[in-house]
Design a protein around this nucleic acid. Structure first.
Lengths: 346, 346
DNA sequence: CTGTTAGCGCGTTCAT
DNA sequence: ATGAACGCGCTAACAG
């Protein structure tokens, strides 16, 4: 019923091997023969059997992309950039590769499960994006998996994730970015800054917070643990954390958020509390997602080159670009000063 | 070198078939035997070969999700919801299915290419999301592909896409939503409304625009073609279209945008032109994406239940929920009135 | 409940 | 440049 390579071969009066060679194009075939084969493919409306092909060749055209949350534009933009680079020539049967996007939801178990599933699929490459969980046992388990994947011929690339010995890494300088952002605020004269951190046990959270604290220290400001609140990377967390911070310290003049989404929630809470931005309280974000420029006032933030990093990760994963020397490249974030930050009132 | 099912069988002292049965869990196996097999799997660190498995079983654990732009939260949210429903029990080998997210970028060719690739992979299901291109030849080609996919056992579901005879469809009532939004504005007394439409030749664009025009007609307002501008679904298009509209018709009192992203661009252009929202010009969006509530003023829009629709599409694609009667379900959008719309100045 | 046997459809030697 | 033959690793009958 379903038409196979053999059917095509019969119709084109050639051997199955020849059809295979034409389809994969990795082998010399006489032009007239190729024509006949392609015509037969067309007439029979033949579609290659991917699994059979992958089984015989021991590799597949699938590329895994692990993200924490595909509904978050941070990951959407990254995934889009990676995705745009994995197609094109070089692969089997036309060079089209398919992106398998795996939503881990930040769960270590699901991360491992997905890596196993990708291993099972004999994925051509795997790109892990975003911050990692800070759990030794889990990090080790992931490391072991990555080693096995690599051993099986899968290229592994980390994008926006801290380096690991098992893979090439394009790492974001979350620490430096966080520091520059908070230094911008202390430079404006702020002394009472609230910090809305991301979820606990995440590298991104820790690094950004460390940068913030380094800035405080550099400005000779004592770090008051009451002024740091942790929460998920969402708007609501920013809203609630802001109310909490205002309650703990009504004299706050600035709030630094773990990312732009959280910052928007903070802005909403400030407005609802009757506070003006930036006259009463300055607000800083992180990532520079597209909507941040449309906040009112526009959000001061740290721009991460998500699209560029994703593109590069995709190219490296496909072997179309040299990995960085040492296997690790630190990607800087750029401070973008907009209307949401200003000097505090005197 | 790589450990196979036969190795596991040998170590557990059973036949390969038994190992397969344990792994797939679709068959009775004595508890002690299962234990031994699982232990062997563990000791050998065995990972099933997906392609081999798919070849033998003639189906795969892959589910295709076609989106126009994964970096757009509209699709990110939808994909996330679909994705969350495709896992779980019922599938082969643990019931984990992988989501293959295909970014068509709104290109008909890529849409067809991806459908072919998914057919090649013997995908278990395919979900097509978002508006379709309005090109007869292309629609027919897609229809033919969908028919073949269905014939091959792939379940096909449309989510937020107009119905097609070849598939089950959860369709958004873009027309009705657009109409209610514009009626809200005419009801407030607006008579000069600008409309920023999406890209030409898209069902979403056309339906929303039709709704808008129906509202104008109902209010006895003549439709002035100069007050409609087309553009991509992005912020910049909204910005530029607004400047253009203001230039063509300075007495405009309201602007309706094709979606929220475009509306944000419109807001920025109005602000930059020294106009207040909503005192000078009201603005309406569509979709109710998460950031819309944080616009200042918060955006009046039409909420589409993206997450719910995606969840349902995913469940139907997995055969875990009954398709709607007739194979088509019209999902309404709900008008959400916020601060960006008000009565025009007199 | 378990083992035996046959392919699934293709890539890839090795010949020619 | 092309063909013949083998096997990739697994599942699905069919026995027992």
């Amino acid at each position: 019923m379903t038409v196979t390579l053999a059917d095509v071969a019969a119709r084109a009066q050639v051997s199955p091997a020849t059809v295979s060679r034409v389809l994969n194009g990795n082998y010399p075939v006489a032009a007239p023969t190729r024509e006949r084969v392609l015509r037969a493919v067309d007439e029979l409306d033949y579609v290659l059997n991917g699994p059979a092909s992958s089984l015989a060749a021991a590799t597949s055209d699938l590329v895994g992309i692990l993200v924490n949350d595909i509904a978050d534009p941070f990951f959407g933009i990254t995934a889009s950039a990676i995705q745009s680079e994995i197609g094109g020539p070089g692969g089997r049967a036309g060079g089209e590769r398919l992106a398998v996007v795996c939503n881990t939801g930040g769960s270590p178990e699901r991360e491992l499960t997905y890596l196993t599933l990708l291993q099972r699929q004999r994925a051509a490459a795997v790109v892990l994006t975003g911050g990692a969980m800070e759990d030794n046992a889990h990090a080790e388990a992931v490391g072991a998996k990555l080693r096995k994947l690599t051993a099986a011929g899968t290229r592994v690339v980390l994008c926006g994730r801290p380096p690991a010995p098992e893979a090439i890494a394009l790492t974001f300088d979350n620490r430096g970015g966080g520091q520059r952002l908070s230094e911008h605020l202390t430079g404006l004269g702020h002394r009472r800054l609230g910090y809305i951190a991301g979820p606990q046990e995440r590298t991104t959270t820790r690094h950004r917070l460390e940068g913030h604290r380094a800035a405080l220290a550099a400005a000779g400001i004592e770090d008051d643990p009451r002024l740091t609140v942790h929460g998920p990377y969402d708007r609501r967390a920013g809203y609630e954390a802001t109310l909490e911070l205002l309650c703990r310290e009504p004299s706050l003049t600035a709030i630094v958020a773990a990312n732009d989404t959280v910052a928007l929630g903070a802005c909403a809470a400030l407005r609802d509390s009757g506070l003006r931005i930036p006259e009463d309280v300055s607000v800083g974000g992180f990532d520079d997602l597209p909507f941040s420029i449309d906040a009112v006032p526009a959000l001061t933030t740290v721009r991460l080159p998500l699209s560029e990093a994703g593109t590069r990760a995709g190219r490296i994963a496909m072997g179309r670009e040299e990995p960085p020397p040492g296997g690790v490249s630190m990607v800087r974030g750029e401070l973008v000063v907009r209307g949401s930050t200003a000097a505090p009132r005197v």
